[in-house]
């Protein structure tokens, strides 16, 4: 083994600088290099670890956040490229302790197993329910297919979406 104590060099080719992003309704500052992704910025600089790094290549969906209201993959966005946009992470979805109806339905329907994809499922679902209160079965499938879940087989998650739609339309009522 080798241990050393020399001072660290600046990372090669980095012009790291202070970046301000509007996240969950407030301006938040951190350090970002040109290649820093939004996901890294959220997790490492802002400590918002609810957005997950599942693949870092835009394939699993677990890093989904809302950018100006639409879900996007924060691992494929440069932090500097979304300056000026409104970013909403899973930490910004609930109103205080009141869960979003989809969050509540995910809990009630047992749609959560390991929970690693859960924030992304919620983020994508919030966008869906912002656009329509009564999504079709195919719209739900498309929304759920946006994120890889290896635990649930998606059935309970889809059920949570159906339950949310029922509750929003007043048909189901709370359990």
């Amino acid at each position: 083994m080798t241990t050393t104590n020399a001072a660290p060099a600046a990372a090669p080719g980095e012009q790291a600088r202070v970046l301000t992003l509007r996240v969950n309704g407030i301006e938040q500052r951190g350090i970002a290099g040109p290649g820093t992704t939004l996901l890294e910025f959220l997790r490492e600089e802002l400590g918002l670890t609810g957005s997950k790094r599942g693949c870092d290549l835009g394939e699993c969906g677990c890093c989904s956040v809302l950018v100006d209201g639409r879900p996007m993959l924060s691992c494929l966005l440069l932090a500097a490229d979304v300056a000026g946009s409104e970013i909403t992470t899973i930490e910004g979805i609930a109103r205080g302790e009141t869960l979003h109806p989809l969050q509540q339905a995910m809990v009630d329907e047992g749609a959560i197993q390991c929970g690693f994809c859960t924030p992304a499922m919620v983020i994508n679902g919030v966008d869906l329910f912002n656009r329509t209160a009564s999504p079709s079965r195919d719209e739900i499938k498309a929304c759920v297919s946006a994120t890889v879940c290896r635990c649930t087989g998606y059935n309970r998650i889809e059920q949570a979406f159906v339950t949310t739609a029922e509750r929003l339309s007043g048909k189901g009522g709370a359990r």
Partner: peptide
């Protein structure tokens, strides 16, 4: 290991 992108400058005209 996290796959980081480095070694370029960023411009957004």
């Amino acid at each position: 290991m996290t796959t980081r992108m480095t070694g370029f400058d960023f411009e957004r005209p």
